Computed example of a mutant assay.
Amino acid sequence: MPVVRDIAATYRGPHKVVARLLAMGEREDRAFVILMAACVVTFIGQWPRLAREAHVTGQELNPLLGGTLMAWLFIAPLLAYALAFAIHFVFRALRRKQTPYGSRVALFWAMLAASPLILLHGLVAGFIGEGIQLSIVGLVWLVCFLWFWMSGMLQAGKGI
């Protein structure tokens, strides 16, 4: 199934999409591409906010974009791998059957599936700025991300 359809299907049933991804077999390149796509979309989602910040403060936009690029395309993937590794051990300590690959796919797919809300968050931050609207969109993103992630983690444990 194409990625856009999988993202839409995740909002209807995240465990089904993660089950389908895990049924394709353990391929670390697939997990890495999912993670990098999520990071790229998140980076793009930051552009309106950064443009607003540069305009309001009088800063140059390019250094802000460069720092955000470094953060999202080089540092965030390392942190995501570390988080997936740590959560894998938490689930193992709770006697849940998990594979490290399943933990990574659940986290990385949750990041990618929630990315449309990150784009909306960036638009709200760029065009409206700080306020209740930004907080509401951020809260909706957080709830969806956690729902996708935990559903994916539980599904990853069932496949063993």
Rank of each mutant, 00 (worst) to 15 (best):
R52H: 10
M36E: 06
T10L: 11
V17F: 09
A8M: 12
F74D: 00
L154E: 10
L35V: 04
C39Y: 00
V41N: 10
A19P: 03
A86T: 10
L79Y: 12
A106N: 01
A23F: 09
V56N: 12
R104P: 01
P2W: 13
C144M: 14
I34G: 00
G66C: 02
A125I: 03
E28T: 03
T42S: 08
V137L: 03
R104D: 02
G131F: 13
H15Q: 14
T68Y: 02
G138T: 10
A110P: 00
G159L: 15
H121D: 12
I7T: 05
G102F: 11
F148E: 14
A71R: 07
E53Y: 15
F108I: 06
L79R: 04
L139D: 14
V143M: 08
G25M: 01
M36D: 04
F91V: 02
L22S: 10
H121R: 13
F127C: 03
A125L: 08
F32D: 08
A9V: 08
F91H: 02
V40T: 07
G122F: 06
I75S: 01
A93D: 05
I87L: 13
V33R: 08
L119A: 15
M111E: 09
V3T: 10
R96G: 01
F43V: 00
R12P: 09
N62C: 07
A76S: 10
E28R: 10
G157Y: 02
M1K: 06
L146E: 08
L73T: 09
S103T: 05
L146K: 11
S135L: 15
V4L: 13
R96P: 04
H121Y: 13
A54D: 02
M70V: 10
A106K: 09
A86H: 03
G102D: 08
M1D: 09
E26D: 04
V143N: 14
L120D: 04
M24K: 12
M70D: 11
V18A: 04
V18T: 01
I34N: 06
K158N: 11
A114L: 05
L78D: 02
Y101L: 11
W141F: 15
M150F: 11
V124I: 15
L120A: 15
L83Q: 03
K97L: 11
L78M: 14
M36K: 05
L65C: 01
H15I: 06
A9M: 05
W109L: 05
E28A: 08
A54G: 03
R30L: 05
A84S: 04
A93V: 00
A71C: 11
A9R: 15
G25H: 00
A19W: 07
P63H: 06
T57G: 15
F127M: 13
V140A: 05
F89V: 02
H88S: 00
G58C: 09
P14G: 09
M1S: 12
Q46I: 00
A113K: 07
H121L: 14
